[in-house]
């Protein structure tokens, strides 16, 4: 079971090569990586529990991201500000993600063995419904309180929302200057805190149940575990963490691209997790933390490296997408426990 995974090694070699060819300064890359670690860390961590519970990669983390965006848009609409506003966003996002996580869990209980493709479709469907609400529903069915965020035709919200009232509220806490690097200690602790929370959960009875269900639903059932409830809990936790992760992401960026900000969060998060050495059958927080660092290092340097090697920045860009998709495809093709546990 413990099989040395070559994927992180490949990422290290590729990143080193790309760093060399890009000519970027290591401190610039390091500060970028720290930023990405903060932005994406929690989202990647959100994937760990569903993998442990045998449900594979949860592409429906986009739904958690959408829950966060709904909270943000509503906060902007109601003119909420500052820390209180951020708190309200979190409360709304979490409420919505608990409900939607529960629904996803119920659906996934019907499609045992095909969870991954189903979560993917759920993500697309949720995107469609979300766009319908905010592009068509706003201004027709829903009366906005804040006219400034509407498109000039009066129907639908603008593509871009400025989040000045919430920008960098939490990431300016405890920032340490280390040479050329700014280290936002609080945010790093927050990501590590999420990692700690997951580690804690995996060392409780609930965690044992996740592991047991992940090894095989039939056996877990024989042990008297309510496998359906355990699987639903796994997805709810994942969705909630994804929502938190996306709130951190958005407030760090300070802008919300209303219709597209959540897109591909699932792909990048999954690829990062796998880059850290996880498989679709096994993942722990170490994989997630290492994966974010490795994946984003490569991501940051590859366009410049592509520009320098081929004098074509687009090639570096294509390489990036290939890395993201290819990592996932590789993990899916390589782990062949077959239908055994999927049933």
């Amino acid at each position: 079971m413990y099989r040395a995974n070559a994927v992180p090694a490949v990422f290290i070699v590729l990143s080193a090569l790309a760093l060399y060819f890009s000519g970027l300064s290591p401190s610039f890359v390091a500060s970028e990586v720290i930023t990405r670690f903060i932005r994406d860390g929690v989202m990647v961590l959100a994937l760990v529990i569903p993998v442990t519970a045998g449900m594979g990669l949860n592409f429906a983390v986009t739904v958690g991201a959408l829950a966060a965006q709904v909270g943000i848009v509503l906060a902007v609409d109601w003119g909420l500000q500052g820390a209180a506003g951020l708190f309200a966003i979190t409360a709304m996002g979490l409420g919505l993600s608990v409900v939607s996580g529960f629904l996803i869990g119920v659906m996934l209980n019907r499609v045992r063995g095909k969870e991954m493709i189903t979560t993917m479709i759920i993500g697309f469907l949720a995107t469609g419904i979300y766009q319908l609400v905010f592009m068509v529903g706003y201004g027709t069915v829903i009366r906005p309180a804040n006219q400034e965020m509407m498109l000039s035709r009066g129907i639908g919200i603008r593509n871009m929302l400025d989040l000045a009232p919430f920008r960098n509220i939490i990431d300016t806490i405890w920032v340490i200057q280390a040479g050329p690097l700014e280290i936002p200690l609080f945010m790093i602790l927050m990501v590590l805190g999420a990692a700690g929370l997951i580690t804690y959960l995996l060392h409780t009875r609930l965690g044992q149940q996740f592991k047991a269900v992940g090894e095989g639903v039939e056996k877990a059932e024989m042990l008297g575990i309510d496998t359906r409830a355990v699987r639903i809990k796994a997805i709810v936790l994942s969705t909630v963490l994804a929502c938190l992760g996306h709130i951190i992401f958005t407030q760090n960026i300070g802008m919300l691209n209303v219709y597209t900000a959540h897109m591909n969060t699932d792909i990048f998060a999954c690829a990062a997790l796998l880059a850290g050495g996880a498989s679709i059958l096994r993942a722990h927080v170490g994989h997630a933390l290492l994966g974010v660092l490795l994946f984003h290092s490569l991501f940051i340097v590859s366009p410049q490296a592509g520009q320098n090697i081929f004098s074509n920045a687009a090639l570096g860009e294509y390489f990036r997408t290939f890395v993201a998709y290819g990592t996932i495809a590789f993990a899916l093709v390589m782990s062949t426990r077959g239908r055994g546990s999927a049933g």
Partner: peptide
């Protein structure tokens, strides 16, 4: 559960 230890299997739940 094959990947769990004897302890974990004996005391599960």
């Amino acid at each position: 559960i094959p990947s769990m230890t004897v302890t974990e299997n004996v005391t599960i739940r």
